[in-house]
């Protein structure tokens, strides 16, 4: 099987978010592989180990992203590709999907796996947009996957219910929590990762111009959620408490 994984580098989930000058500060931040993409990588490895073939993990970012790609290689992926997007201004999900679509244009693949959403921006758009541009089917938020004879059977999580979907390859799927338990890189894996190929591509190499992939959205404002106010315990006779509650809901919280 020709297996591809699309992966994003994100803030560590334990990082505290700070906004400075209208932007999220990345000062001293630790990065990880987007946890949903980790499920995708694990699933890819299991598919490869079962059906044979090769896994290429693809990411878009700056040179720092090489670290997460190396981690993916150490987990067991065979090859990595980094597409450098440092020169693109007004970057958004359309940009990512366009670059990836161009990358996949001349590739032969049976399946592309990705995370169902990234834990930072959380738009969940990249994979469906990519599938659309490539003209292939996609199944989102899968929690189980079986592949046999050119066909895939996936269970997808639909707000707590399970849908079972069959599709023919080539196919794109996105991983939901529960799909598997991602392994961590073993030490022999880490040693081997050094020697595995990691290709760095510029937009030029994909025959793309920065203008081709310019984003189509504009960020108006970035702000943190309001601080949670302390709770209040109402006191007095039950009837008074109810009155006070109704009053507060009307005048303070303005929900009724």
């Amino acid at each position: 099987m020709n297996i591809y994984v699309i992966m994003k580098r994100t803030f560590d989930t334990e990082e505290k978010i700070a906004v400075e000058n209208g932007k999220i500060s990345d000062d001293g931040v630790e990065y990880i592989i987007n946890p949903y993409d980790e499920y995708a990588i694990e699933e890819a490895i299991q598919l490869r180990d079962k059906h044979g073939g090769e896994i290429t993990v693809v990411s878009i970012g700056d040179e720092e992203t090489e670290k997460e790609l190396r981690t993916a290689l150490a987990m067991g992926c065979d090859k990595a590709v980094l597409i450098n997007n440092e020169d693109v201004e007004d970057y958004d999900q359309v940009s990512t999907a366009s670059i990836l679509a161009k990358f996949f244009e001349d590739k032969e693949f049976d399946i592309i796996l990705g995370g169902n959403v990234s834990v930072d921006n959380g738009t969940g758009q990249i994979a469906p947009r990519l599938a659309d541009k490539l003209g292939i089917a996609h199944i989102a938020t899968i929690v189980n996957l079986e592949v046999a004879e050119g066909k895939a059977t996936a269970e997808r999580d639909v707000e707590g219910d399970i849908e079972i979907i069959e599709a023919s390859l080539p196919l794109l799927v996105t991983a939901q929590q529960g799909l598997n338990e991602p392994r961590y890189p073993s030490l022999p894996g880490i040693m081997k990762a050094k020697k595995k190929p990691l290709e760095v591509l510029e937009l030029d190499d994909l025959d793309l111009d920065e203008d081709d992939v310019e984003g189509q959205t504009e960020v108006i404002d970035v702000f943190l959620p309001p601080k949670k106010e302390a709770g209040r315990i109402l006191e007095g006779e039950l009837e008074d408490q109810v009155k006070e509650l109704v009053n507060s809901l009307r005048s303070e919280a303005k929900v009724i």
């Binding site: 981690t71 961590y184 890189p185 073993s186 030490l187 050094k194």
Partner: peptide, 17 residues
């Protein structure tokens, strides 16, 4: 090196999980 950090991370993940 990056490799050192990856080895440390694997160890830490193993211990924590």
């Amino acid at each position: 090196s990056e490799e050192h950090k990856m080895i440390a991370k694997t160890t830490e993940d193993y211990i924590k999980k």
